[in-house]
Simulated scan of single mutants.
Amino acid sequence: MQYISHQDQQLAFEQTDKPKISSNEVLVKVAAIGVNRADCMQRQGKYPAPEGDSPILGLECAGTVCELGSEVDPKWQDKRIFTLCAGGAYSEYVAVDAQQLMELPDNISMAQGAAISEVYLTAFGALFELGKLQSGQTALIHAGASGVGGAAIQMAKSAGAQVVITAGSDEKCEHAKSLGADHVINYKTTDFVEYMKAHNLSANAIVDPVSGRYLNKNAKVAAMDCQIVMLAFLDSRFAEVDFARLLQKRISFHASTLRNRSIAFKRALRDAFVARFYDDIANQKYDFNIYKIMPWQQASEAHAILEGNENSGKVVLLVE
């Protein structure tokens, strides 16, 4: 099969054998690939694959099941699916744990399917599993025009929450508003702490891929018993922390990643997400928030879009 290698930070097509599947896995013929910042970091040598996972890039895809492991329910044969991958999606075929598969409805394209798994499962885990967001509460979502941000906005609104987002341009703020955000803040022109205080807003759950200097600012706008969920540290990996404020408001701070979680964790997360939000996805109640669809021959250009922070929403590669 063909796959995209990442030697010396350069992406190039190479040939290798199809993956051999375990008894609990299926082989998926890949039709579309969701591009993530983690792919860029892995290409740069900053985010190696966990031991046992495929060294090939790619954490999510949509495609068709073409081979079943011995323990897999026969119902999956030839099904259109979307799924997380333990690496390996930048290829014509990828091996996937069958219990993480989600069926792709006929009315949703492969490109749309490839834009769902990583961002929706990440946002779901952050907002609801860790963030404990409830109807009538307020969610603060940083990088609100990102793939995870767009998924978080839409699920939070479905759950009856108020949504405040930050983003780095007026255009990105308008994009987030179109997805349902109630308050949008261009952090380059407006301090989100001042805005939220002026509008009498406090956050019950905060989804934060920025970290660094944002930690103390988040604490200033946090409601009592707020859950702050850190997904990355785009600002800085270090910060001085005002522990008195954290104690005063009984703030809980979570550092969360998805890639290096156990298979059991990912299965449980998938099941909880499907039980609550799959019907909304199948009925296309959400905007799948795709910024650009590109042929996989343009994978380098796709990475450049993410690294330049150009995109509002997901970039998807079509396997052609």
Rank of each mutant, 00 (worst) to 15 (best):
S54H: 01
A95G: 11
Q15C: 12
H142K: 08
E71H: 15
I165A: 05
S109Y: 01
H254K: 07
Y195R: 09
P55H: 07
I206P: 12
N216K: 07
G160Q: 02
I21Y: 00
A161M: 08
I263S: 06
S135Q: 15
G45R: 11
A205M: 15
Y291R: 01
G45L: 07
A12L: 09
A126D: 07
D53Q: 15
D182N: 14
S178W: 01
Q137A: 05
Y93R: 08
Q154K: 08
A152S: 10
S300F: 02
Q297G: 12
A143G: 12
K266V: 01
N107H: 12
G34V: 10
K75V: 08
S256I: 04
V184E: 04
T64H: 10
E240I: 02
N107E: 10
L101P: 03
H199Q: 14
D8Y: 11
Q99L: 10
Q2L: 14
A205V: 15
A268W: 00
A151D: 07
D39I: 10
K75L: 09
E60D: 05
S5F: 03
C61F: 04
A203G: 04
Y286W: 14
F13W: 13
G58Y: 01
F243T: 07
A264F: 05
V94P: 01
G113N: 00
L247P: 07
Y90D: 02
Q100M: 13
S300T: 13
I33E: 01
G136S: 07
V163K: 01
S312R: 10
A272I: 06
Q100L: 11
E118R: 07
N200G: 06
E60C: 03
L104A: 06
F13V: 12
A32W: 00
A62H: 03
L318A: 05
K220Q: 15
P295S: 14
L201A: 06
H142D: 08
D53E: 12
D97A: 10
A12K: 09
F273N: 09
V274E: 09
E194P: 03
